[in-house]
């Protein structure tokens, strides 16, 4: 009985088992803590840094674009002017419809506000004047061509074509659409996002970037 065991941290019993290393324990736990904190709080920073160092591969041809609640996979793409793109836009949500719009300059002020303020969409729509071919429509909620030059394959009724707002294919849960185009000569960084449901999808992070390299 160690009735007198007024332990101090250094004191260990003369037990026969080998002691594990204190330094290893402290070092390991602190390292795990740092890794955990970075994983939790610094993911986007790490990803950005990695992208800065290693770059991002240029995508062309068939590229799947998945919409989830409320994010895209991928949320960063690099295209090159003149490449042929076949975006397979697919809505993976069970409950929500999602759209894909692309442009520049959105009124961020609106997303911060509470009360009466009017929203607006992209000030510049990426798809203005871009020839696009749509095919394989499945569970299309609606489609707004805006100023794009759209060719529809198959019966037009499947696309539920509407007006108002930016170029935006909107898919029902489980829907998909094939969007084929040649990357127009609009190099630079473009934003894409989903504005449905009072812009809340965009506000809560359903957005991404396309970096278009010159030819």
């Amino acid at each position: 009985m160690d009735n007198d065991s007024k332990e101090t941290p250094e004191e260990v019993s003369a037990s026969a088992s080998p002691e594990w290393s204190r330094r290893q324990f402290l070092g390991g736990t602190v390292a795990l803590g740092v890794v955990g904190a970075v994983a939790l709080l610094g993911r986007s920073t790490v990803v950005d840094a990695a992208r800065g160092i290693f770059g991002s591969p240029v995508r062309s041809g068939r590229v799947p674009l998945y919409a989830y609640d409320y994010y895209y996979v991928p949320n960063y793409m690099t295209w090159r002017v003149g490449d042929r793109m076949d975006i397979i836009f697919q809505n993976q949500s069970h409950t929500h419809w999602h759209e894909w719009t692309m442009g520049r300059h959105v009124n961020e002020q609106y997303f911060q506000a509470f009360g009466e303020l009017s929203a607006d969409a992209w000030r510049v729509d990426f798809w203005d004047g871009v020839p696009v071919t749509l095919s394989d429509p499945y569970k299309i909620d609606n489609f707004v061509p805006h100023d794009a030059l759209v060719t529809y394959e198959g019966p037009r009724s499947l696309y539920n074509i509407q007006s108002g707002g930016d170029f935006s294919p909107t898919l029902k849960p489980g829907g998909s659409l094939h969007i084929a185009f040649t990357v127009p000569n609009k190099p630079g960084i473009w934003d894409f996002g989903c504005f449905v449901q009072e812009y809340v999808h965009y506000r809560t992070g359903m957005r991404g970037k396309v970096h278009i390299l010159p030819a």
Partner: peptide, 19 residues
């Protein structure tokens, strides 16, 4: 039973091994 201590190599800290 009390083991022969010298026969074992020092083990990992259990928490780290747990991770």
């Amino acid at each position: 039973p009390a083991p022969a201590p010298q026969a074992r190599r020092a083990q990992w800290p259990p928490v780290l091994r747990g991770f």
